[in-house]
């Protein structure tokens, strides 16, 4: 394997998040190392998506501290997280419905494009060169994900599985150092799942992208993860390499629904 797991780049310490009376996360700590595939699992409503939202600044935890690349983050905003190289996909596909596949993926390169609205109005010289340069990158992503034949299709017309793939493409186009993937394989058939797994592993392997993954398919999770965090009712009940987690009695209980 080309990649080698590095130092801790993201550290979550004592994170608590509540919505009114609902406690979504209670005092959760874990870390993510560079280049690893780190999964977050847990039953429905465990707080997995909320955790991702805390990482990239969509939600602001009431308590706790997030350290990213040695820097303690305050007042995180999603666009700042994007600037720091964190990209993500959503549990409920969040593509731009009115735009084509190419345009959706092009938006992923937004932060790397420097021209302003005046350049764009003229679309000459600098703006044109920039558009072409980034279009090339987007075509690389399209080739990588094997979606050449749908590049001009409005995303709303695509089947679910392909939409998920395009959303991954949009995240990839940003050339992120860390990707947060919220159930990228939900609702897919076996074949589509295999493709998606391959893409995730390839991204991780070829570009060294750190991946934080939420997934319900235990087979997949245990197969591709380096380490796994388990949440249940907003609390952390397990953390470790797949084998450790599999044999953790609390985890087994949570999944069989015997405790509480």
């Amino acid at each position: 394997m080309a990649r080698e797991i590095g130092d801790v780049i993201l550290k979550m310490e004592g994170i608590s998040l509540s919505f009114g009376g609902v406690k979504a996360l209670t005092n959760i700590s874990f870390d993510v190392r560079e280049h690893e595939i780190r999964s977050i699992i847990g039953p429905n409503g465990a707080g997995k998506s909320s955790m991702l939202n805390v990482i990239n600044g969509v939600y602001h935890p009431q308590e706790g501290q997030v350290t990213f690349r040695g820097e303690i983050r305050r007042d995180m905003e999603p666009h700042k997280a994007a600037k720091q190289g964190i990209a993500r996909t959503f549990q409920n596909i969040a593509l731009f419905k009115g735009m084509s596949v190419i345009d959706n993926i092009m938006t992923g390169r937004n932060l790397k494009m420097k021209c302003n609205v005046f350049h764009h109005a003229l679309h000459w010289g600098k703006a044109r060169a920039e558009e072409i340069e980034h279009r090339k990158k987007v075509e690389e992503v399209i080739d990588f994900l094997e979606i050449q034949n749908i590049r001009k299709t409005p995303v709303g017309r695509l089947p679910y599985g392909l939409q998920k793939r395009v959303e991954l493409g949009r995240a990839l186009a940003a050339e992120p150092s860390m990707m947060l993937l919220d159930e990228p394989m939900a609702g897919m058939n076996v074949e589509e799942k295999q493709d998606m797994c391959r893409f995730i592993l390839d991204v991780n392997d070829q570009f060294g992208t750190t991946i934080v993954l939420i997934e319900h398919d235990m087979g997949v999770v245990m197969d591709i993860s380096d380490r796994v965090v388990v949440l249940d009712y907003g609390k952390k009940i397990g953390d470790g390499v797949p084998d450790e987690v599999k044999n953790n009695p609390d985890v087994i209980a949570a999944y069989l629904g015997t405790s509480h």
């Binding site: 990239n56 969509v58 905003e77 999603p78 666009h79 997280a81 994007a82 600037k83 990209a87 993500r88 959503f90 969040a94 593509l95 731009f96 419905k97 938006t107 992923g108 937004n110 932060l111 949009r170 940003a174």
Partner: peptide, 9 residues
């Protein structure tokens, strides 16, 4: 989709 737009930067 404004949330997704913001997450992209």
């Amino acid at each position: 989709m404004d949330v997704a737009a913001e997450v992209i930067g």
